[in-house]
């Protein structure tokens, strides 16, 4: 019980300590207005291109994509902010196990990503007068939770690159663009080059976007169990890889003396 409480306390405190967007004014600008403007841009674009056909599905899947702010930039802060503050070496030198530590740090971003995506959907519903059935909304919450968990896993892998590379902005922007490109939120995956379609199979959010469109536009839940299972396994794989990379970076830092930015 003590370990579980510690896990959640660490999640909240590390979010406050490392993410730094708890100032309401900054939060509204960075985590609300910025994602909403992105959603509005794509909603207007797909409305123009497809003449309003399947608009609800496009808006809902773009709302899911708003989680990128947390699953990429938020998760990166789990390592880069710690390193920049000079606290990473202190944290890594404590006796706590690093796997639950980094998973608990990611948890707050999964929750925050969910919040941003749901806010985005409400914004889209109000702005475009959409109607989504209640049972579809409940399914969407589950699909999004798993999708955002998976995206945060990939985000953590990329964040570990920052233990080797000082170019954190390059990595974060590359991943954010890639998630937008191959998610299939704004065009069908079939219009992409074949090799890019293959890349999409191994990326998070792709299945979430597909299920979101299927459920919102056609009320089709038939693929939910299969795709959701795949997305969850992918997320677990991403987290497992990231934890191995963190352990390797820790070892490398002890050999090379490079854990902290001095």
């Amino acid at each position: 019980m003590e370990a579980v409480q510690r896990f959640f306390r660490h999640s909240v405190l590390s979010y406050k300590a490392l993410f730094g967007w708890l100032d309401p004014k900054v939060y509204i600008f960075v985590m609300v207005l910025n994602p909403f403007s992105q959603l509005l841009f794509f909603a207007v674009l797909v409305n123009y291109v497809y003449g309003g056909e399947g608009l609800a599905g496009y808006i809902a899947s773009n709302a899911l994509l708003l989680c990128v702010m947390n699953s990429v930039f938020g998760i990166m802060s789990v390592i880069t902010s710690d390193r920049g503050m000079g606290t990473l070496q202190l944290v890594m030198s404590t006796p706590s196990s690093k796997a639950p530590l980094f998973i608990s740090r990611s948890l707050a971003h999964v929750v925050n990503g969910m919040f941003t995506a749901v806010m985005g959907l409400l914004f889209g519903i109000l702005l475009f007068g959409l109607s989504i059935p209640f049972d579809a909304l409940l399914s969407l919450l589950v699909i999004w939770l798993v999708s955002i968990f998976s995206a945060c896993g990939l985000g953590l892998i990329i964040a570990t690159f920052c233990l080797w590379s000082p170019s954190m902005h390059m990595w974060s922007n590359l991943l954010a663009s890639l998630l937008l490109l191959v998610s299939g939120a704004n065009y069908p995956l079939s219009v992409m080059p074949a090799w890019l379609e293959q890349v999409a199979v191994f990326m998070p959010l792709t299945r979430g976007v597909r299920l979101t469109k299927d459920i919102v536009n056609q009320g089709d839940f038939s693929q939910m169990a299969t795709l959701l299972g795949q997305e969850f396994l992918l997320g677990c794989l991403f987290f497992a890889i990231s934890l191995v990379l963190i352990a390797y970076a820790e070892y490398l830092a002890r050999v090379k003396g490079t854990m902290d930015l001095e």
């Binding site: 510690r6 306390r9 660490h10 405190l13 590390s14 406050k16 300590a17 490392l18 730094g20 708890l22 503050m85 000079g86 606290t87 202190l90 944290v91 404590t94 006796p95 706590s96 530590l101």
Partner: peptide, 22 residues
């Protein structure tokens, strides 16, 4: 001056590391 979480209070900084040291 580094090596602390500046956005946390003094108490929370210590609580954070107390958890890390179990």
């Amino acid at each position: 001056e580094r090596n602390l979480y500046w956005r946390l209070s003094a108490y929370d900084n210590l609580a954070y590391f107390a958890d890390l040291y179990k």
